[in-house]
Amino acid sequence: MLTTHHKNLAAIIHLSTLTKFIIPLGNFLMPLIFWTMNKDKSEFIDKHGKQAINFQLSILLYTIIIGCLTIPMFLFGVLNSVSFPEFWNAYDFDFHLSIHDSFNVILFTIISGLLLAAAFIFEIVFIIIATSKANQGKPYKYPITINFLK
């Protein structure tokens, strides 16, 4: 039987992911604590707890992938567009950045930043939707989530 207490606990599990703004790794630790303490009380709580943790792990994985693509591309773009002095010629210390090459680096950095900002906004929106669904007693499955916990 689904009670108001179970609905509230499921909603708290989803909302506890927002503790990442206060506690480092709070988005993993707090839902994990609430879920493990209450997963045996209700199948509803168990499903919502797994969904919240799976979503946070998926977001972490996607952020790592974007970072692994962005950082090397940015560094290689900067290093390719910087003209380093030749050390065997003591009179040639010409250090400059090509405007054309730096534009590509800046554009790629802006696109990557926008991707990360969009992921952040979607994360907040999906957490609010999941909290609302849990409070209404409805099941919710986060989009683009990899099921680490089944």
Results as ranks from 00 to 15, higher is better:
Ile59Met: 13
Leu15His: 05
Phe93Cys: 06
Ile45Leu: 04
His5Tyr: 15
Leu114Phe: 14
Leu2Asn: 03
Leu32Asp: 09
Ile53Cys: 14
Gln51Ala: 11
Ser81Arg: 00
Leu9Gln: 03
Ala10Thr: 07
Phe76Ala: 06
Ala11Phe: 06
Pro24Tyr: 04
Ala118Ser: 13
Lys7Thr: 09
Phe95Ser: 09
Gln136Thr: 08
Phe108Cys: 04
Gly26His: 03
Phe103Gly: 07
Phe122Val: 12
Ile33Thr: 08
Leu149Ile: 07
Leu9Arg: 00
Gln56Gly: 12
Leu15Met: 09
Thr131Phe: 04
Phe44Leu: 05
Leu69Pro: 01
Ile59Ala: 08
Asp40Glu: 15
Phe93Trp: 08
Asn54Leu: 05
Leu29His: 05
Ala118Tyr: 12
Thr63Ile: 08
Lys141Val: 12
Ala118Lys: 11
Phe122Pro: 02
Phe21Ser: 05
Ile22Ser: 05
Asp101Glu: 12
Met1Leu: 07
Asn89Val: 08
Ala134Asn: 06
Asp40Asn: 15
Phe126His: 09
Ile144His: 10
Ile53Pro: 09
Lys138His: 10
Leu2Glu: 00
Phe87Asn: 13
Ile127Glu: 00
Gly77Asn: 03
Leu32Cys: 11
His96Lys: 09
Leu107Asn: 03
Val125Met: 02
Asn89Trp: 02
Phe44Ser: 00
Glu123Trp: 00
Trp88Glu: 15
Ala134Pro: 03
Pro85Lys: 15
Gln136Val: 02
Phe108Thr: 01
Asn135Ala: 13
Ala11Leu: 12
Met30Lys: 13
Thr145Trp: 04
